[in-house]
Structures are given as structure tokens and as C-alpha cells.
Design a protein around this nucleic acid. Structure first.
Lengths: 143, 143
DNA sequence: ATATAAAAGGATATTTTTGTCTTTTATTAT
DNA sequence: ATAATAAAAGACAAAAATATCCTTTTATAT
């Protein structure tokens, strides 16, 4: 469904969203540990999230990453879009180049319902929603 | 969502399912042309479908592939399972190793609904359904 | 029997994704 | 100013997915 890079991105964002007011900044190492991801690879992904303003980063001692104001309000949909693009939301499930209402693939209408469901869910689920589950201990970031 | 191999598999199966009674056998080249896929790669995929008895193959002149009795009755779900396994139906969307009702990832319940929807659709959509759309010219296999 | 056709099988190549390592840049504290 | 810290950037490496090529096996037709 999503690339590993995208999963790391989502989990990183959720983790950063769980950090309490005033202690929002945290280093790469701690993020990678918290979500159980390879550190250097995670760094690349965080860079992309910084470029898209979902995160802020500060170099040097006591540096690290923190969720931005934009990032705080963002949905799952946006995070996926930044890392994987929106092919998962709009691409043809059977791989046709041109797959439209007028010239649909064999599974177009069946998959349209699924994709609409997925897109709707992703556009209405915020990082805050998911961070709350983690904070309350009803859901988890690793293992 | 699905690997390219899996898309080629689905499209091949649909194409083979559209062939009329008595003219069911057709060569690799024609299949690859019909679905616009790389020939040799498609061959590998068809071999896997033969191994799983969704297709039959005959070597030599006038040889080729044809859909088996099993294959005729099969659902999209089964084709995907043969090529991609069922991680798309059962795997954790956020990549957690252990993601269960008791120890869910942050998005578990949201994705459960999507996956149930997807799985349900795939288990009830047969190749025949999709072949009919192609035969009637209301859906397409390439471009 | 022989030549031909077509899939099977295996080796190899390419591309994409994932992952690591090293150097550079920015920031902080001494 | 200097040393230390941490992210950014870029080069490189490994693994997986995709794709091709070559040889072998099986069947058909002459």
C-alpha cells in the first residue's frame, strides 16, 4: 500500500505529534529508536518533510526536529502525498495509463469505491487523532 | 497497491477469461500484446499462475496458455494472493510487525475498515465479472 | 526422423527502493 | 575563537523488483 519510506514518515510524524508542548524538539536518534527505523534512511525522509514544511529542524547542539504549526494540522493524506505522491489515491489499480470513467479498466468502478473510502479516511484523519491514541496508550508505534 | 507483476497477472487472467469457448488457447506473445506488458517478464508470471492451477499451458506448435476450470471460477483475491501474497489484505498499513486488535498501530481501526472493504470486494469479484465488461466493450485492458 | 514452434527454466541485467557512510554546514557552549 | 553537536547533502552500497536473454524441454507437423 505505502512504501517503507512513507510508513517511516507517518510514524515519525505521529511520534513527533505526541510530544508535549514545550518538549517538542527531539533528535533523529530518538525518533528512529521510537519508531524502530533505520536512522540514516529516516534522516532522508525527515528532510523531505522539512522541505514541505511539515517539520522544522534545528542544527547543532540541542538541535533536532519538531513538528511545525502546519504539521500539527495535517492529515495522513498529506503525509503520504509528500512521500509517495498520490498514485495510491488516483492511480489505476490494474496499471492502465489512461483509466477514466469513459475508458475504465476492468476493475475501475469496484476500485473507485475503495479508493474513495481510502481517500476520505486519509483526508479526515489527522496526526492529532493518532497521536492521542498513542498518548493514551491505546495504540503503539512499534512492535 | 499491487506489484506490477500482480497487475500483469490480473490483466492476463482477465484477457484469457474473455476468450470464447473453443478458442481459449493463446500464445504468450498475444497475451503480452493484448495487455501491453513485457513478454519475458509476463512469461514468468504466467508460469506461477500455471503452478497454482489457475492456467494450463501446452508446449510446442499451437501451444500456449488457457484458463483452467479452476481459473474460470477464481476471484481477484486469489490472483493477488498467488502473486503478491496476502500482505495487502492482512499486513499493517504502518508497517508494525505485531499489529493486532489488542496492540494496534495508530491507524489500525481506520485501516481495518478499508482492508475489510477491499478484501470483501476482491473476494466477490470474479474474473468472469471483469471479462464480461471487456467483452461488452465497456472496459479495457490497455491504454 | 527431422525441423519447427512454443513454453519452462536458469542466468544475467537493469532499475527502483532501501539503507549506509562521509563530508559539509549551522548552532551552541566553553 | 574553538570544540562539540546535530542536521544537510551527497556519494555509495545492498536488496528487491522488474526485465531480458539463452538454453532446454515438450509437442506438432512435415
Amino acid at each position: 500500500m505505502f512504501s517503507k519510506a512513507c510508513k517511516y514518515a507517518i510514524n515519525s510524524m505521529i511520534f513527533l505529534a505526541t510530544l508535549p508542548e514545550g518538549e517538542e524538539r527531539i533528535g533523529l536518534k530518538d525518533i528512529a529508536t521510537a519508531i524502530n527505523s533505520p536512522e540514516a534512511f529516516t534522516a532522508k525522509i525527515l528532510q523531505a518533510l522539512v522541505r514541505e514544511n511539515l517539520l522544522e529542524s534545528i542544527k547543532g547542539p540541542n538541535g533536532g526536529f519538531q513538528i511545525s504549526e502546519v504539521g500539527k494540522k495535517v492529515t495522513l493524506h498529506r503525509v503520504v502525498q509528500v512521500i509517495d505522491g498520490d498514485s495510491v489515491f488516483t492511480g489505476c489499480a490494474l496499471g492502465l495509463q489512461e483509466c477514466t470513467e469513459k475508458r475504465p479498466c476492468a476493475a475501475h468502478h469496484k476500485f473507485k469505491a475503495i479508493r474513495d473510502h481510502l481517500t476520505g479516511m486519509m483526508m479526515t484523519t489527522t496526526l492529532e487523532d493518532m497521536a492521542n491514541g498513542i498518548r493514551q496508550g491505546v495504540s503503539y508505534l512499534k512492535y
